[in-house]
Design a protein around this nucleic acid. Structure first.
Length: 106
DNA sequence: CGCGTGACGTATC
DNA sequence: AGATACGCCACGC
């Protein structure tokens, strides 16, 4: 195994259902990542197969270079964004109990 | 081993 | 509302 963390992050992101979004910090916490930066780094490296468009920043705004594409993809899934910001309070993915327990304890 | 860089976060001004 | 500072950790040089 290259990196458990690597696999973990990918798994978490794949677990995010359509129409929902998660923040880098959430993914990092659920995956047990030391810092949210790793989430971005992993996505930049192996995020091609993952629904990266469902990952937003802490304030509900997507990455600068992807913002345009990201918001459009999200809109197609039912996640309406106010031109720039997404309603995290409404679309924020809430992890199911077993997922976080299984992940954190392992 | 130090330094810069990065799809980040929080605090502060 | 914007910009700045610091922390955080992996990766390349």
């Amino acid at each position: 195994m290259d990196d458990v963390l690597h696999e973990r992050v990918r798994e978490i992101i794949e677990s995010v259902p359509a129409g929902t979004v998660a923040t880098y910090g959430d993914i990092a916490a659920l995956a047990g990542a030391p810092s949210p930066r790793m989430v971005g780094a992993i996505l930049a490296e192996d995020g091609h197969d993952l629904p990266w468009h469902r990952i937003l920043r802490a304030n509900g705004t997507p990455a600068p270079h992807l913002a345009h594409d990201q918001l459009e993809r999200l809109r197609a899934e039912g996640v309406l964004a106010d031109g720039q910001r997404v309603d995290l309070r409404k679309y924020r993915w809430k992890p199911e109990g077993e997922e976080e327990v299984e992940g954190l304890l392992f």
